[in-house]
């Protein structure tokens, strides 16, 4: 069969045999460090296969892009028929991942997951082995959802609590079944626990205050403000920072405001040096920059003479 475009073959392994091109401008680069890589065939615009495992047999790309990266022992085949199919397996016996939608991403970390199949736009699967034992009751009497933090830890929370976050609220809408897990990137386990503690408390108070009198509501609001202050007071400055960043990412306005107020109270009326001490910040200004800034502060603010 004649090749239409340019043909380039590069084999690094011992038994790399053959490369074929059948697209208009198909460039196939095969770089194998394993022993028995047999063949890479490209039929679409671009197909790139990079096999770094022992028994990677074949990658076939029939869509625009098919990329397979296998890091496990017995991965047999990855087939991409949509726009993008990406399979990343980190377990022992994963047999097949098939992507038929726009985006299919499978991440399995348990032992015996056999197959995950997607037919919609987004789906996230996690095994029950990862889910923690704590089962909080939903304050609204509805269902619970499972959240997975960036460090892989899994947490259960009520929908009412999670909906205090604009981001989580949007994610929850896409969760169809109870065994699905909402992955929360950029927020680690301990921080997510703190976030959920805040959200659960606020959801409980909101649920309890429904239908009560204006006086009772005002009393509950004051009590909640006091709870917020105590809640933030028991955190270290580092934990407060992580919570601040997380609440910004998750878009929890109440928590953002509370932390901003707490930090503002720490800062208020302090000199630059006192602020550095309070927030554990090392001064990295050059001597010249420091002198200029100090001069400005001396002239125009209370800095270096806070009593003024």
């Amino acid at each position: 069969m004649e090749a239409v475009g340019e043909e380039k073959g590069a084999t690094v392994a011992e038994e790399g045999k053959m490369m074929k091109e059948q697209g208009e401008k198909g460039v196939v680069a095969s770089t194998s460090e394993a022993e028995k890589e047999k063949m890479v065939e490209a039929k679409g615009e671009k197909a790139v296969a990079a096999s770094e495992a022992e028994g990677g047999k074949m990658v076939e790309g029939q869509g625009e892009k098919a990329v397979a990266t296998s890091e496990a022992e017995d991965v047999k085949m990855v087939e991409g028929k949509g726009e993008k199919a990406v399979a990343t397996t980190e377990a022992e016996d994963v047999k097949m991942v098939e992507g038929k939608g726009e985006k299919a991403v499978a991440t399995t970390e348990a032992e015996d997951v056999k197959m995950v199949e997607w037919k919609g736009e987004k789906a996230v699967a996690a095994t029950e082995a990862e889910i923690g034992t704590s089962e909080p009751k939903d304050v609204a009497g509805g269902r619970l959802i499972t959240l997975k933090s960036s460090d892989g830890k899994v947490h259960r929370a009520s929908v009412a609590a999670a909906q205090l976050s604009v981001i989580l609220s949007g994610m929850i809408e896409e969760v169809v079944t109870d065994d699905e897990v909402v992955i929360v990137p950029l927020v680690d386990g301990p921080t997510l626990v703190t976030v959920l503690e805040y959200c659960t408390k606020h959801a409980e108070v909101a649920a309890a205050a429904r239908g009560t009198s204006a006086v009772a509501f005002a009393t509950a609001s004051k009590a909640l403000e006091a709870w917020d202050r105590d809640f933030l007071d028991r955190l270290t400055m580092d934990a407060l920072h992580d919570l601040f960043v997380a609440s910004n990412f998750l878009e929890i306005q109440g928590l953002l405001n509370a932390i901003a107020q707490k930090a503002a109270d720490v800062i208020k009326g302090k000199t630059t040096e006192q602020i550095r001490d309070a927030f554990n910040i090392v001064n990295d200004l050059t001597p010249e920059q420091e002198a200029t800034a100090a001069e400005l502060r001396r002239k125009y603010t209370w800095d270096y003479h806070p009593e003024a």
Binding site: Q261, K268, I275, L285, A293, W302, D303
Partner: peptide, 21 residues
């Protein structure tokens, strides 16, 4: 957000001298 919560614009000058960040 923190600086605006303080409610004193002098704080901008003070806070600017804390570190390069």
């Amino acid at each position: 957000r923190i600086i605006s919560t303080v409610g004193d614009d002098r704080m901008v000058i003070v806070a600017s001298g804390v570190c390069t960040g």
